[in-house]
Write a protein that binds this DNA or RNA. Sequence first.
DNA 1: TTATTGTCATTAATATATTAACTAAAGTCC
DNA 2: GGACTTTAGTTAATATATTAATGACAATAA
Lengths: 140, 140
Amino acid sequence: MRKFDDSIPLKLLKAREASMNFFRPVLQEIPLTEQQWRVIRALYEYKELESKQLADLCCILSPSLTGIISRLEQQGYIQRRKSTEDQRRVLISLTQQAIDMFERVSPTLEARYRAMAEQFSDENMELLHDLLNKLCKIKP
Amino acid sequence: MRKFDDSIPLKLLKAREASMNFFRPVLQEIPLTEQQWRVIRALYEYKELESKQLADLCCILSPSLTGIISRLEQQGYIQRRKSTEDQRRVLISLTQQAIDMFERVSPTLEARYRAMAEQFSDENMELLHDLLNKLCKIKP
DNA sequence: TTATTGTCATTAATATATTAACTAAAGTCC
DNA sequence: GGACTTTAGTTAATATATTAATGACAATAA
């Protein structure tokens, strides 16, 4: 039978942990959680997003996102407004404070990312990106 | 600057989600959570483990494991005993009920795993295993 | 227009993740 | 032996994950 460690989901989890070890210390000093940073990073790039789009991009389920959003709002990092056309939709964007914080912190994280890529090798990096893209497309 | 989607940690997360979609429905019918199954699977293979070893194998932090263990114990799936040499250590093992359940359910999960591997291709599977092993070894 | 159906975000309930603090039991040094 | 340090497991507090259910709004069909 297949051995315990011969499991793709488990290895994906462990590999993610290994990669996150490069970034966690930086985020802890801000302080921001991993998920909060993911949300902020998405909003920095897309400017304004609906809650559902944000959840999909960040791979966070809606009920979790509701809490993350409200905590980030309390910290002054994001603002929300209701869509004028569709009163159900909520549009979310970063505050200037968040933009400033992002631009201050991201160089450090980018440096950590390069350190990780260097240790892993750019070639493996590219290979892994491809494989993960393919894996994301499989459907049960 | 690096784009939002060009992130290894995020892709590892999304790939893991895609792969777990093959197994979640099976586990939900037992019902067991993903983490509970990971613990049971490890114990089925290693027979008896200390809490710390189990945490390391399953990639679950000790405080989380404490809760998972106590819930599995309540459900009659595991039993614990104190080590005789070192009174700090707790040794955990499956009950017969859990062994029976495991042997009943695992064929279905193995079939799902083969379906996943087939869709992804065995070649990609092997390549991904290698890359993830390498990635697990990097240190900040 | 009304009744039906579907969608978006949230709430509720439970399980897990994360960091810090704590307890009990070993191990170490003197 | 006694003070110090370390280790295994747990508890505490907060954040997130997961599924089900809800409320408000929108789209659609009769």
